[in-house]
């Protein structure tokens, strides 16, 4: 076995005045991996948004839309609902950037990871019960997303 570590004879230390290789990620084309990473963050945001919306909906006054119309201020002071909505906005923004350079047919189905996070978070936060169907669903979705993410690119 030859040693191929640091002491290669053709090793050239980087020059100090070498131009910076950093390019603004907003401008350059993202790699397949980066797009997948972005949409992964998206699913986390989406799940958090959904949970917040559920909490916010729970905090709304009873009586439905007419009660809200009578006192619209309840919407503005419902921070869970507002937080959920703004997370959805962020979700959309990140999704747009992921879609810009990724394939639609790869990026879009990955959003199904949402179901996984929401199911897990509901177990923890709302004390919903686990059952074999949910467990199987989580496993199968994760497997599907893995296959899609690994093989979907070039």
């Amino acid at each position: 076995m030859r040693y191929h570590g640091y002491f290669r004879s053709d090793f050239q230390p980087p020059l100090n005045d070498a131009p910076s290789t950093f390019v603004n990620p907003l401008q350059r084309t993202l790699t397949h991996r980066e797009s997948i990473g972005l949409v992964f963050c998206c699913t986390l945001l989406g799940a958090a948004a959904q949970i917040l919306m559920k909490i916010g909906a729970h905090n709304l006054p009873p009586g439905g839309p007419s009660a809200i119309a009578a006192d619209p201020l309840v919407l503005l002071t419902n921070f869970a609902l507002l937080g959920g909505l703004s997370l959805y906005g962020l979700f959309t923004l990140l999704l747009i950037f992921a879609l810009r350079d990724g394939e639609l047919s790869v990026i879009y189905p990955i959003i199904a990871l949402n179901y996984v996070w929401v199911t897990i978070l509901s177990l923890i936060l709302f004390h919903e019960t686990m059952n074999p169907f949910k467990a199987a669903g989580i496993g199968v979705i994760v497997l599907g997303v893995t296959i899609l993410g690994r093989g979907g690119g070039r």
């Binding site: 394939e103 047919s105 199904a112 199987a136 669903g137 599907g144």
Partner: peptide, 29 residues
């Protein structure tokens, strides 16, 4: 495929089918 000319691949079919199955499972659960 239609609008952006993205190819169908085996991976996409496999991944998508598993995701559909998984969503159905979670619906059942």
């Amino acid at each position: 495929r239609l609008f952006f000319k993205e190819p169908f691949t085996r991976y996409k079919f496999a991944g998508l089918s598993l995701i559909l199955l998984g969503v159905w499972f979670i619906g059942m659960g």
